[in-house]
């Protein structure tokens, strides 16, 4: 896997040199754009971490853990609900699960799949369309939910069948 990352970086830089593009300058431009996106994300992330911490520490999670047979089910459910809203909070849940159960355990793989195979639908819908200034209609939400539903069903199916 290290080779994929290093290959991607090296190929980009070598092509930059061959085409005589100012790679350093465009790298910095990209960093600037990326950090703006991250700074915009910060407020969303803060709100989310706050809610997640509230829910985590009020004890309802522990009570649910005592009720259910598999201890990771509530966490996966929360991640499934959170994933279409914000990428950062889904990633924080994923890292929690990694720390708790180990990187290669069943729940960790489950949450990796959830994180990798869908994207922040509601965030996109509100942020993209409001910043460009497009009126949305209700039908779009149904199609997005349909997509999310399909991917969740497929993930559960694959996880239960193969791992």
């Amino acid at each position: 896997m290290i080779y994929i990352i290093s290959g991607y970086i090296l190929i980009t830089i070598i092509v930059c040199i061959f085409k005589k593009v100012d790679g350093y300058h465009s790298f910095l431009c990209g960093i600037k754009e990326g950090s703006q996106v991250v700074v915009n994300m910060f407020s969303c992330l803060f709100g989310f971490v706050f809610v997640v911490e509230c829910l985590k520490n009020c004890g309802i999670m522990e009570d649910m853990l005592n009720l259910s047979t598999h201890s990771w089910i509530p966490e996966i459910m929360v991640q499934m609900m959170v994933r279409p809203l914000s990428a950062g909070s889904s990633m924080s849940i994923m890292m929690d699960i990694y720390d708790k159960y180990g990187v290669d355990s069943f729940p960790a793989l489950f949450s990796t799949f959830i994180h990798a195979s869908c994207d922040t639908f509601f965030y996109m819908l509100t942020f993209y369309f409001s910043s460009v200034g497009i009126i949305q209609n209700k039908k779009v939400i149904y199609y997005g939910l349909f997509t999310l539903g399909i991917s969740y069903i497929l993930i559960t199916f694959v996880m239960l069948l193969f791992f």
Binding site: Y8, I9, T12, I13, V15, C16, K19, V21, D22, G23, S26, F27, L28, C29, G30, I31, E33, G34, S35, V37, V38
Partner: peptide
């Protein structure tokens, strides 16, 4: 994310 945005921007420019 910032690191990947930077490299991706380079790939676009090249």
């Amino acid at each position: 994310m910032i690191l990947y945005t930077g490299i991706f921007h380079m790939a676009i420019d090249a």
